[in-house]
Design a protein around this nucleic acid. Structure first.
Lengths: 195, 195
DNA sequence: CGTCTATTTGAATGTACTCAAAAGCGGTGG
DNA sequence: CCACCGCTTTTGAGTACATTCAAATAGACG
């Protein structure tokens, strides 16, 4: 079994011995998710957090008017869930779907709670994970408040070039909070500017 | 010495014995901040995290064009800092100013690191703090993406009624990502609607 | 009381949206 | 292998939400 990527991910922040790694891995379930399948749907109890080994997922919120807001793209080496509903074991607000054939690890809330108790270092690991997530979202709030759509698009492309290349524009637009039509216009204008 | 509020805050998530509390409190510095003073300025090294006992603070980002984006209001029982710069010990992107005379506790990064080592439960405490902050910011992203300004204003007033009452509209506008003029219009329109 | 800042109001403008239609692209079946 | 279907992207016209700028009014504070 090749647990390379997830072991590396953990080892970025904490150091586990072999026994601890074995305990951790024993709580994970490796799953293949074909493109277009969802691992969580709005309204469904959110029981798991996921680690992406390969492929790509998208988490989005669907509002009453049917408009999607993409919350995050999760590619290799990312953790993803609907955090509020996972922590509080509530019905999900978000839907998470595979946008490519993906291989992911599933960790149940009860198993995470077990890990916190059995291997205290996991508190530190998730503290750092949450900290990074908080910082990321806060930066996104700042950018949404202070930058026009075009600048936000450029930052997105700069920060996640691989996502930007492999994902539908429609989905990038919904991450930026603009319509696909307007994103199309932005890109076209920029090219004109470069002539 | 009255440490009631901060002890309550800690005790929401972890249980410390008396010795541990004493260690914790010994690392805190209680400070009075007069209205309009700043405890952190953009560009200055962010060395501390703060807990608000009383009063109110505002954290904001000032962009190149001179426009302010209010990131958060911190009132009694809240923790506040420029998290990215605190964690990485970098020059602050944010400015944090007292909008009322305030009493706060200051905790240095090095002391927090000491606490993580000396009292492992602090990992858990800050894990939960970061988790809640992440969830809050993510919800704010969703709302910024999917709701018009008027709905965001109403949610803000509903969620933080005391802040909404005591803070300048200009500052609320900069939290919502709109101009003070437009917020004024929103409020006026709503009143008309209620006649 | 006077000054400084915040809020309101209004007109002109800009950024981004809606709706509709055409063009492009990718996958699937004949 | 080509043709067709469904979905994404582009293009454009008209519209709506929010901004800018300016000026008047109201509030807060020394």
């Amino acid at each position: 079994m090749n647990h390379y990527i997830i072991q590396e991910n953990i080892s970025k922040h904490i150091t586990l011995n072999e026994t601890e790694f074995t305990i951790f891995l024993s709580r994970l379930k490796k799953i293949q998710i074909p493109r277009k399948n969802t691992i969580l749907s709005q309204g469904q109890l959110c029981e798991n957090i996921y680690f992406v080994e390969s492929g790509a997922l998208r988490a989005f919120y669907l509002d009453e008017s049917g408009k999607e807001a993409t919350i995050m793209f999760a590619v290799s080496d990312w953790w993803v869930t609907d955090m509020y509903c996972f922590i509080n074991q509530k019905p999900a607000m978000l839907t998470i779907e595979a946008i490519e054939n993906s291989i992911i690890y599933r960790l149940k809330k009860s198993d995470l709670d077990y890990l916190y108790a059995a291997i205290p270092q996991f508190e530190k690991f998730f503290r750092i994970l949450m900290q990074n997530a908080y910082i990321r979202e806060q930066l996104r709030v700042i950018q949404n408040l202070s930058l026009p759509a075009e600048a936000r698009y450029e930052i997105f492309v700069g920060k996640y070039p691989d996502v930007a290349k492999n994902v539908k524009q429609k989905q990038i637009a919904s991450y930026l909070g603009i319509t696909p039509e307007f994103l199309s216009m932005i890109k076209h204008n920029k090219r004109k500017g470069l002539k």
